[in-house]
Design a protein around this nucleic acid. Sequence first.
DNA 1: ATATCTGTTCCCGCCTCGGGAACGTGGCTG
DNA 2: CAGCCACGTTCCCGAGGCGGGAACAGATAT
Lengths: 257, 257
Amino acid sequence: MSPQPNKRPGRTIRSVQIAFNIIDLLQEEAGIGVTRIADELGHSKSTVHSHLRTLEERRVIVREGDGYRLGLRFLDVASHVRDQIGNFDIVQKEVDSLAEETGEIVQFGVEEYGKVSYLHKAQGEHAVETLSRVGTQQPMYSTSLGKTILAYLPPERIEEIAAAMEYEPKTANTITGPEELFAELETIREQGYGIDDEENIDGLRCVSAPVKNDETILGAISITGPSSRFTEDRLHGELADYVRSAANVIELNTKFS
Amino acid sequence: MSPQPNKRPGRTIRSVQIAFNIIDLLQEEAGIGVTRIADELGHSKSTVHSHLRTLEERRVIVREGDGYRLGLRFLDVASHVRDQIGNFDIVQKEVDSLAEETGEIVQFGVEEYGKVSYLHKAQGEHAVETLSRVGTQQPMYSTSLGKTILAYLPPERIEEIAAAMEYEPKTANTITGPEELFAELETIREQGYGIDDEENIDGLRCVSAPVKNDETILGAISITGPSSRFTEDRLHGELADYVRSAANVIELNTKFS
DNA sequence: ATATCTGTTCCCGCCTCGGGAACGTGGCTG
DNA sequence: CAGCCACGTTCCCGAGGCGGGAACAGATAT
């Protein structure tokens, strides 16, 4: 883990931190019990016990066999979150249909805390496996979604995000500094779409188009595939067209909300 | 809210309770700020402030405009939860295809804390609108999913759940007591599927079939529709066949996991 | 300019919460 | 069957975390 960047000062509450450490742990590994959790987090069993009781009462975790797992309540929360984002169904529909049409991976992402979070993902028939998962975050400088969203954010927010950025080279092509990034953003604004040329994962290329609502950017939609199928020509040609028209459809449907 | 039934004694941690009260509040109403939350929960602003800081650092909530909403991290958590349940993709696929085939509402539910929780839901073309939502809970005695799952749980667990049950009549047909419930469970075990004849919501009927793995029940799959289309004959005939064969497909695919 | 919202910060004192240790229990081993 | 160990649970204590009140700071509207 890298040192967390979003650290505004202010007081933070220890018990709540512990509670979420437990949740994080159970997210990674289900079915463990008091002792194991206590060990893992470096707390006494009694402490962990009280927390588990609390979380259990809240339906956050569930006792199953001997051990705990996260509760189904999270499914409910997630569905509320999607509703709050707004227009999720339209995004979902469009992403799904583009994935089916092209057979590749199609994703929709938004900016959160200076990173890209995937809101929805669909994979077509001959899609490559990727690790990305709905709700997880990726850096903005190494993904086409990230760069595209960034390009259309308000200038002051771009500055803010760029200032907090730590450029970690993920492949040989990854953008490594601000000058390079700003140039890229300019290019994206000119051509109206963004490219990831094996900058995040070796062998994978993407194109993204921004989805805006009245000049404010909502997110971006991308299509991902292996470099073998995603040649320069196709990237800038038909594939770019695909994402731009999908973005357009979403924009039209969200206009009057 | 009825008095929470799952109250095992043991100490519970106040700060964590407060944190989840905030989360619950934001789930219902996004975009509110410190003052409003403090009012609503009856805490001081400083208290709420510290909590918001903590939750923000944890990516649980996000500041948006002036106000907070739940973070996309919940989408990630939810997807982990589904994975932990196991065989979610198979369930999803089967539920979706049955919904498309019949055009009605199809759901898959499991037992959690003595209630039914919906794991997945799909609605076909001419499906009625219902309030049920993925992750939410319903009583076991008034739904076909609940009764069907209950019927196949181990006897001692049935006792346990039934003992804690509070029978609240949702419609004129709702089961109102243990004798009636146990008789119904017996019927379900005999015929291999469960019926909800407007017992939960007026005008709606359902059929459910159990999904088992080696004699232990995993959950149940149901189909729901208006009484006008769901006649006695169809319920016990083709509709029951539908859910039973879908349940069968799921069972076959989960057998070797 | 004044008033009134908001979010933030700073303390203080009570009481909560984390920890250690003891207890109860079930499962495995000899 | 006795013994042991691992587990979850309970009890109690003392330190310090946490909730609250009040003062401060910005923003917006009047």
